[in-house]
Design a protein around this nucleic acid. Structure first.
Lengths: 199, 199
DNA sequence: CAAAATCTTGTATGATCATTCAATTTTTTG
DNA sequence: CAAAAAATTGAATGATCATACAAGATTTTG
């Protein structure tokens, strides 16, 4: 088990270095040498551990998805009602562990490049579908059928937009404020759907 | 004036080819040769007209901004009240001339790369500030001071998110539906602000 | 129509990078 | 501690591209 652990530590360090490098050089121009330098290693060692730059990028995206997943599980564990679970899903996207400048930036770059990189495309598609499905599951018990699709797409578009804005780096992302704003929008949409269409 | 016109026609053709190429190869991997091929020209001629790939990208982004600007002016010309002007600003972002698969895709890629490309960064920052300012100008007459910032950022994040989704290419963007949804959200936010805070 | 201006492109150049590999160091193991 | 395994890297390789340029084609002009 010792072998496995050392390799895992290196993987973690290199993925973390990749996130930092992507944050300040960009997906389009980051080089293996820069990432390696950020981790205090050599470009060749990245290939030793990951096989290729593509696979490093894929593992880096997996890392972000895994952070989201962990945050989601933690919040869902404490949610009892459909409404709480919906808010848990929304707020998980702006968890302190996820909503940082570097990670917002990397996330947005992966989005932009997903259509042109098959490994990223797959992960991206799966994640997007899963989030949509999670939201809809809860909404089914909260809003009438006619409003369901609109509420889900609105929430998801809003969350994507907040990530974009955070990635532009104008201001340091404030995770707690982002959660509060997202929650407020979700609640507004829920209230409206119930009012205008009857619950 | 003939000279000027020929050069302008070439510029238009090359920018249009750049948009198509960016759409199906991606900002990170599109080459001068591909863009030139798309326009039925040679890579060297792009440099003849634009001087460099960077400047072609800059002109391509300017084109998108110009389309947005034109759509906005057309809609503002018919708006009489602050509410109508706000909705004009929102709907201009999803004008038929702008909200196409290729253009959504290019727009999102420019966003993602703006922080790492100085010419794009400048354009992006200016545009973002202008849209924010336009929205706030109208909102000042529509919602109380305390809600203004939240409503503006919510609208803008939502619009960004819709672009992201359109760029992912899952479904062909439906501009009319996007306008209706955006308008509905804007109206909901306006109503809520007036109700909860008294106008 | 000829000279000049403009436009076009094939090819050469040089820079950048991911990746490979052989050689070396470090760590593990028995 | 010595042999084996794992980890690390500098340097070489080869591919990809933007760009420069010179030569030639086309268009404009007087």
């Amino acid at each position: 088990m010792r072998r496995r652990r050392i390799r895992d530590i290196r993987n973690d360090e290199l993925v973390a270095a990749a996130i930092r490098s992507l944050h300040h050089r960009g997906f389009g121009s980051v080089t293996m040498a820069e990432i390696a330098g950020e981790a205090g290693a050599s470009a060749a060692s990245i290939n030793y551990y990951f096989g290729s730059k593509d696979r490093l990028m894929e593992e880096t995206m997996r890392r972000l998805l895994s952070i989201l997943h962990t945050a989601l599980l933690a919040r869902l564990a404490e949610a009892r009602t459909p409404r709480d679970r919906l808010l848990a899903i929304v707020e998980a996207n702006f968890d302190d562990t996820l909503f940082t400048p570097a990670q917002c930036s990397v996330w947005v770059q992966f989005w932009a490049n997903a259509p042109y990189t098959s490994s990223l495309s797959r992960l991206h598609r799966i994640n997007r579908a899963r989030v949509a499905s999670n939201i809809r599951r809860e909404l089914r018990q909260l809003v009438p059928e006619q409003g369901l699709n609109r509420v889900q797409t609105t929430i998801q578009a809003y969350m994507d937009g907040v990530w974009i804005e955070a990635a532009q780096g104008g201001t340091v992302p404030d995770a707690a404020a982002a959660r509060a704003d997202a929650r407020a929008l979700a609640e507004l949409l829920l209230d409206q759907s119930r009012q205008s269409l009857g619950s």
